[in-house]
């Protein structure tokens, strides 16, 4: 688990979602999600916890607060922020996530031999195959952004996972917001 580097980062609330997306440890994922959530019970994420209805916008606010950190990272390491989030039934890249994409674009540009799989995901609402298509469209809109930034198409692959691999469980807006995402899988 890469828990410590994340904990040190300023990106408290956003990193828990990244953790969930990238975690590969055994045991109860749901339990560890809850633990992470309460452990990071800062002002940033508590709005989402206390009121699921507003968590979507809470997420956006969190990201814009943290993105400068990842934006400044210019060494050869994989960017810490590798997940961006979307509105329901939308593939539009929200402006607060553009620095995250820019950091990943820079990493890909500076490391021409690195390949990335853009994994698109949706929340569980709506039908599965339509969500499969929607998730691929999200990943493609990120691919398009990278292409405009001059990233070679040979470095990028797109896979739509639909609603099949949720990062968070539960029928509430906070879980839905965490699940509508594109993950940079290096």
């Amino acid at each position: 688990m890469q828990f410590k580097p994340y904990a040190r980062s300023l990106a408290v609330a956003l990193s828990l979602a990244v953790l969930a997306g990238c975690s590969s440890t055994g045991g109860s994922q749901e339990g560890s999600m809850d633990g992470t959530r309460s452990g990071n019970g800062s002002g940033v994420s508590s709005s989402g916890v206390s009121d699921g209805r507003t968590s979507g916008s809470g997420y956006g606010g969190t990201a814009s607060g943290t993105s400068s950190t990842s934006g400044q990272q210019a060494d050869g390491r994989i960017p810490q922020q590798r997940t961006i989030y979307f509105a329901f039934d939308s593939d539009r890249i929200r402006s607060e996530f553009e620095p995250v994409l820019a950091a990943n674009a820079r990493y890909l540009r500076e490391n021409g031999n690195v390949r990335v799989v853009l994994q698109g995901h949706t929340d569980e609402r709506g039908t599965r195959e339509y969500n499969m298509a929607l998730s691929e469209r999200r990943a493609r809109s990120v691919e398009q952004f990278l292409s405009v930034q001059g990233i070679s198409p040979s470095q990028v692959e797109v896979v739509g996972y639909g609603e099949e691999r949720p990062a968070a469980r539960g029928q509430n807006d906070q879980a839905y917001a965490q699940n509508r995402r594109v993950v940079f899988d290096y």
């Binding site: 997306g21 990238c22 975690s23 691999r165 949720p166």
Partner: peptide, 11 residues
């Protein structure tokens, strides 16, 4: 059927 979340799932 499925169990787990994220990258740790069984289908």
């Amino acid at each position: 059927t499925s169990q787990g979340v994220g990258n740790n799932m069984q289908f």
